[in-house]
Design a protein around this nucleic acid. Structure first.
Lengths: 226, 226
DNA sequence: AGATTGCGTTAAACAGTGTTAAGCAGTGTT
DNA sequence: AACACTGCTTAACACTGTTTAACGCAATCT
């Protein structure tokens, strides 16, 4: 991404649209705001966005239909749906149409930004074949390796899983419970102790480059600083 | 495949059927949805699908029976079973009836799509006359050979079978039990030990290209990284 | 027939991984 | 300052996977 990250935002409620647009712009995103589905589809073609944020209920063309049409030719660009309904079926439908995430209204701007960043980072991991740079290290997630110069440190599966969660959003707070739920499926006492052990082991393996640190935020989670 | 890939979907629960149908269609598949086993069999004959997605529990004819009948004349077209039950026996039974994969309800559309694509890729192996590229190697499955430049390593039958299971879905986790059931017919202690031995032997023969690795995922299976 | 070879299985010792446990250290609160 | 709480570290452990070798069987050769 040479310049700013481009967001295509489709939201028919003008005031809400503007609020979202401005908060994204304040985070250094470039945003194109569309008021209905047709306009969004047209804009999509010329604007070449990095990520789409689509309201589900819009005039002329709803978000799901729009997503389906886009997905025909573009299986990659992440999509976040904004939905007022909270019923499960809508969520299923959203994922079914190729979306990557959804957000129920009302939501906080923080939440949206977190998800946008998460999806973009995930995308990046995929585009680099799962290889992420961490300071002077290269972290090869599929091969479970940490490479520093000519040194190769093998990681175990769990180590690689934990590190991936931290590395795909560096310098950001990742919540303990998010990591635990994603990897262990449950956030309970024992899994928590287990994770502690892996944090220790990762710190040991990352010690070669002192500019990298796994910083604890008491009561919340960790940040990978690099 | 001249046009779109054709999926025959048999699912008696109408709402779920429609969701699956639409999700697949949004990914550019052509889908024929059948509400029971008899209808599915009839449709199969005229529709000539590239892949079958069958609910196990259906009126008139269950998915296993249907699969068995289809397999009599058609050993190739991949079959995915959808099953509400989660017991291991059903999975084993599924493979026994000629199924290639199974999916436990509830599942996400993402999962289904990943598996459909994986099986279609597998078909690709057949279309290249059973020759698969693995890193710098060429793996000739029918001839049981690994070719690297001008070096030719012969493989034994079992080695070739195990390697095929890994190579037709590279970079993805293949479950131990799946390999064991497909090759040995049963996942028990001794077959497991036997497989370990072949994993070792394959690793030895694949050592020439260090970019290739058979990575273990503790408790689940292996990934062929390349 | 007897010897040889090749293959898959069994066996056994060994290494690696994730979890649990226990004690210690750090942090914020009362 | 005392306290509770969270996190850190090390070690022990049970379990899973790895490796090498030996074994037994069947097919092939002499």
């Amino acid at each position: 991404m040479g310049e700013k990250t481009k967001v295509l935002l489709a939201e028919d409620e003008a005031s809400l649209g503007m609020i979202i647009k401005e908060s994204l712009e304040s985070r250094n995103f470039q945003v194109s705001l569309c008021g209905d589905g047709e306009e969004a589809l047209e804009t999509y073609r010329s604007y070449d966005p990095d990520i789409l944020v689509l309201d589900v209920m819009m005039p002329l063309k709803d978000g799901f239909t729009l997503a389906r049409e886009i997905r025909r030719k573009d299986p990659d660009t992440p999509i976040i749906f904004l939905t007022a309904k909270s019923r499960t079926e809508d969520v299923v439908e959203g994922f079914g149409h190729g979306g990557n995430d959804y957000l129920r209204k009302p939501f906080s701007m923080e939440e949206l930004i977190v998800r946008v960043n998460a999806l973009l980072n995930r995308q990046q991991v995929r585009k680099t074949n799962g290889i992420v740079e961490i300071g002077r290290y290269k972290f090869d997630y599929p091969k479970q390796l940490l490479i520093l110069g000519n040194k190769i440190l093998p990681l175990t599966h769990r180590e690689a899983e934990v590190l991936l969660r931290l590395a795909r959003q560096p310098n950001r707070l990742i919540e303990r419970s998010q990591i635990l739920n994603e990897i262990w499926g449950e956030d309970d006492f024992f899994n928590g102790r287990s994770m502690d052990v892996f944090i220790t082991r990762l710190r040991k393996k990352l010690k070669q480059d002192p500019s990298i640190q796994i910083v604890n935020v008491r009561g919340f989670g960790y940040k990978l600083i690099c």
